[in-house]
Amino acid sequence: MSPARVRGHCPPVRFVALGDSFTEGVGDPVPGGRRGWAALLAEGMDDGVRGVEFRNLAVSGALSCDVRDSQAAAAAAFRPDIASVVVGVNDTLRRSFDLMGLAQRLDEVCALLATGGAVLLTACLPDPGSVLGLPAPLARPLARRQRAVNAVVHALSARYDAVHLHASGRAWVEDRSLWSVDRLHPAERGHRKVAAGFHRLLLERGLAPGAPPGTEPRQPPPTRAAAALWLATEGTGWLARRSTDLLPQLLCLAAAEIRHAARGTSATLDRRAERELLRALAALKPPAAGHRTSDPPAPSPVPRARMEG
């Protein structure tokens, strides 16, 4: 989406999106590339008067460290009025998963953008095991990880008064029409539902005066041949990469699930995950007045009160 021209004397609303393939737009192909929920939301934020300047910095495969180390500085330099930070699923799919480190990295990103005056958009997402329909011994470890990530996101959303979208419930998992052929990324309908959900929440704050994004797809669904081709090319590549990274550990985690289930001690794994979550939340430093993780540029010339008024 090209930046809108300034209309009248009001500068356009600046909206930047950070994250991974969920935000990059995978699953929502359009002529010339990908679109995704963030671009759809940007269109719904344009009231035809001020305009919207939108940049999508999300990159497929990004981890929380990539968002902090690469995307956050570019986003802060853009001086956004609104910034979406949706990341973490890829972290749960790595054998190096570190909840405390993820929480600290997300906190740094949120602090940097909020200190610069941006309203943050966040979301909790379904765990990949449920969406993929994996067997219970494989799905449960991923579910614990994603629940923990969602809990961290909830805590940070409250800390920074973020606009938070709950997108992890059963309705999101069970509605097959929301997901693309790979069962990991939203299809066009899913991207539209995310965009419409954020638009509704922003409208409640007076931040999305434009028309809400439509919820019905405008592109025909992929044919079986196209779906098979995707799985045979990109899908196979994804599986190969994860097989050398996550799969060995996931099999070990699954074996532990089976052992504890046989002994009737599955609750032990849940309690262990809860303790790790409490440690991660406790390790977050309380925000100080004027806190900065680096030296961001001056706040946007559009005052927050004006945007919300």
Rank of each mutant, 00 (worst) to 15 (best):
L281M: 04
F198N: 01
L165V: 10
S84E: 04
E234F: 10
A58I: 03
Q71C: 04
P303N: 14
H260F: 05
S294R: 15
P286V: 11
P128E: 09
G190C: 07
N150W: 06
P287L: 14
F78H: 04
A283W: 06
S168D: 15
A171D: 15
D175F: 07
V173I: 14
A4G: 15
D295I: 05
E234V: 08
F97H: 13
D295G: 04
A123D: 04
G214I: 09
E274Y: 00
A226L: 07
S168P: 00
S177R: 15
A73P: 00
V30S: 01
R170G: 07
G61C: 06
E234N: 01
A288E: 13
A232T: 03
A171K: 12
R144K: 05
A118G: 06
G214E: 15
D270T: 00
S168T: 01
T233M: 07
N56E: 09
A267P: 00
P3W: 15
P297H: 10
A225N: 02
I82Q: 03
A38Y: 11
D98F: 05
R68V: 01
A103F: 03
R183F: 04
P80E: 11
P287N: 08
L178N: 06
R176C: 07
A158L: 14
L99F: 07
S168G: 08
L132T: 01
P186T: 03
M307A: 14
C10H: 11
L132H: 04
P213N: 11
V67E: 11
A39N: 10
R68G: 00
R35T: 00
E43F: 01
A114W: 10
V86P: 02
L277N: 11
Q146K: 01
S96M: 05
R241W: 01
E308V: 01
L203D: 13
G237Q: 10
R94G: 04
T233Y: 04
R279M: 05
C124D: 12
A282E: 14
D245Y: 02
V49I: 14
D161T: 11
L57P: 00
T265H: 12
L134C: 05
G237I: 00
R304M: 03
